[in-house]
Amino acid sequence: MSASLGKFTSALMAASQENTVALAALNFDFSLYKVEAPKEYQALGSCLSDERRILAEGGSQHLTARKLGAVFRTRLPAVPHLLRAFAASSPLRNVFAQKVGIDGTSIWAAATSGTEALCAQLLACMLARFWAADEATSIWAEILEARKIELSERGGNFDIPELAAMQTTVSRDQLADWDASARAWLRTADAVNLKQQSQLRLIIENLNVEVNQRRNTYESVMEVWFESMKVVDKLVAGVPQSVHNGAVLVGLSA
C-alpha cells in the first residue's frame, strides 16, 4: 500500500511540475523580454525614429523577433563573426548617416531580442532577396509550422521561451511586416552600395551553381540559411573556404 501511495505521489508531483512549466510558458510575455543590444548595433538604435524604436523594442516587430528566435534557437549555428560584421559594416554606418529615419525596425527588434533573433533577421533578408513579398511570407509560415512539428516530435526537455514559442502563433500579418522591414532595409543598403551590389549580382547570375537539391521547403531553407551563415562567418574570421553549392552566394547577396 505504501509503495503504491509513493508511486502515486511521485506521479502527481511530476504532473504538477509539468503543469507548472506549461502554465509558465503560457504566461511568458515575449514583449517583456528584452536584451541589451550588442555594442556594434548601438549606433543603429540611436538613429531610428522614435516610432520605429518603440515598435522594435516592445511592439509587434519585437514579438515577432523573439518568437522566431525562440523557435529556431536550438538549431542555429554560432556565427559571432558574421553578426559583428553585419552590424559594424560600412553599409550600416553609411545608410544612417545619409538617410536618418529609414526602416531599420526589424534589425533593432532582433538586436534587442538576442543573437537567435539576429539570425532570423538575416534569413528575412535572404528570403526578401529572392522571393516576392507574398511568397516570402508564405515560406515563413510554412517553415514555422514545420519547425513546430519537428520540436513536438523531438521529445526531451524544453525551456520556457521555447515552450512559449511553440504554443503561440505568428500571424501572417506579423510575418508580412517582418518581411517588409527586411525588404526596405535591403533596398536602402543596395542603394548605398550600388556598385558593389551590381558587381556581385553579375557574378552570381553568370554562375551555374545549384543552391541545393532538397525538394522539401523546410529542409531546403534550413540548409541554405545555416550553411550560408557558417561560411560567411568563417570568411569574416579569415578562414579560407571551399564552396560547392550556391548557399553562400545567397547569403552574400543578402
Rank of each mutant, 00 (worst) to 15 (best):
R53K: 15
D103Q: 06
A15F: 07
I107G: 01
S46A: 14
R93S: 13
R52M: 09
R215I: 05
A237P: 09
G59D: 07
R66A: 13
W108C: 06
M126E: 12
A87F: 11
E142T: 14
H81S: 15
S253T: 01
S4M: 00
M126H: 05
F158T: 03
F86V: 06
V232G: 02
A11H: 03
E153Q: 14
S242H: 13
A109T: 03
A97F: 09
A146E: 07
L127N: 05
L83V: 06
S138N: 13
L249K: 06
A247H: 08
I54A: 15
T137W: 03
P161C: 09
R215P: 00
F158P: 00
E162F: 04
E142R: 14
A184L: 05
N216I: 05
L83A: 09
A141E: 07
V192T: 10
A25I: 07
L5V: 00
P77K: 09
A189T: 08
L68T: 10
A3C: 00
T217K: 11
E145R: 15
N245K: 11
E162H: 11
R93M: 03
K234I: 01
L23A: 14
W131I: 01
G104T: 01
P240C: 07
I102G: 04
A3Y: 00
A136R: 15
A111F: 06
A136Y: 06
